[in-house]
Design a binder for these strands. Sequence first.
RNA 1: CGCGGGGUGGAGCAGCCUGGUAGCUCGCAAGGCUCAUAACCUUGAGGUCCUGAGUUCAAAUCUCAGCCCCGCAACCA
Length: 504
Amino acid sequence: MPGKFYITTPLYYVNASPHIGHSYTTIAADTLARYMRNKAGEDNVWFLTGTDEHGQKIEKAAEAAQLTPKDFADEVVLKFIGLWKKLNISYNDFIRTTEDRHIQVVSRALEILYKKGDIYEDKYEGWYCTPCETFWIDAQVIDQACPDCKRKVERISETNYFFRLAKYQDWLRGYINSHPDFVNPESRKEEVLRFLELNKLNDLCISRPKERLKWGIPLPFAPAHVTYVWFDALLNYISAVGYFDENNKYRSKWWPAQLHLMAKDILRQHAVYWPIMLYALGIDLPEKIFAHGWWMLKEEKISKSRGNVINPLDIVNKYGLDAYRYFLLRDVPFGLDGNFSEEAVIKRYNSDLANDLGNLVYRTLTMVEKYFDGNVPHVEGEEINYDPRGEDIIKRIEGRDSIFQKEVRKGLEEYNFSYSLGEIWSLINMANKYVEETKPWNLAKENKGDELKAFIIVLVKVIRQVAGELKPFMPDTSSAIINQLGSQKIEKGAPLFPRLLPQC
RNA sequence: CGCGGGGUGGAGCAGCCUGGUAGCUCGCAAGGCUCAUAACCUUGAGGUCCUGAGUUCAAAUCUCAGCCCCGCAACCA
């Protein structure tokens, strides 16, 4: 299926409610999916998200809430689905790791790898940190405390199953070297490569004995054990869109994915574990993976105890959905970390959305109303004499593949959302300048009807172009603008983004 | 021996890989305009590009040394 676009977010772990980070990855994926639908056609895009629901943390959280793990997950899943609805997320499929279709594929994958000898049994002895679900070897543990969380670790000795990561280390290095576009951005690729060069991979422990953890997918060849959550979760990308046939060949219309999006903290799993799992299973690798940055919250050190964690819903309710989408994608280059604060959101809102874009649309509507009785003028024939003052702007938006569109799309192709939005805003600024230079109010006074008409035609055209390119980023705003400047008669409503007063 | 990110006009950042007049947004000041949401447009002030040394005709940009800041807590994007 050439030209298709299969894009994924990670499966979000349901041990807590969704927060700004989840919404960031998902909004970015949504924007790309919308863009690609427009470019490649609705039927050629598949956008997957979902939830990861097994593992010890869920088991414990459920216990604390006095629910079964499944009931607990069901509740949290509703929060995710509710948020995606609120954020206008256009996913095609939502997969849960507790679904049959997923469990089937995981079981088959385990079986295949076991038969192949890539999963083996071994005795494990060491320390275990329950809250972190992490094993530690003697050298890593000081005073029986977890190196990560400093809590007390337990001595354990048990039989477990291991996946042969180490065997494939050199292959993976070679693969990443010969596919420089695989891990993005480039700095992350270097990070992964260096990691692979400096460290020797350990085989990955992929099981937990049932007496310690019940909530998981049982190993088909060792029913007393369940699968480790990461091994389980990663497979969603293929379990959602395909199956293994009788010959253990994986079949799917959508696979391989064109892009896995994630935050930088789970790069390792996606750039190391996942490709090796796929390779061992004889399945094609995804085309690209992209790890973006984190949002830092001011006063984060005390954020939890003070309860001032950012809830995406609050921000959306306060400032509007598209303002939130805009802020996340504009304020920081995708890939880098950023600082999140309401002041920053308000700043962006007022200067970019209210003053630049909203005001441009509003003043244009008013002019159409005032000078043309609300009828949007049309070009009849070819002989409109554009005002030379509009030359720059016309050059930019001329033709089907205008410079403007090319630049905006270039940003999207490179996952550089802030670049695209910057291009859109530079056209908006040009348009505001164009109004100033043309001085339509003088044209009106001097009864220069033709010039006025030529001017407004250009202006409306610019705004339509802006609305068009804005569509994947801010779908509601885009259609609102199109509606207001509808084909014949304008529908001037309230300003799109009423200016927010200071304070708050 | 920690790991990673970073230090650029008042604030937030880009530029650094591929050396060559230091750029953007916000804020500030002055002016202009009235179609517009006290919005828009123009101009201006303001910088030892952390420090030192080195390479070079030339360094924010490359090399070395040093100083300082942030994250590595939660939850995880």
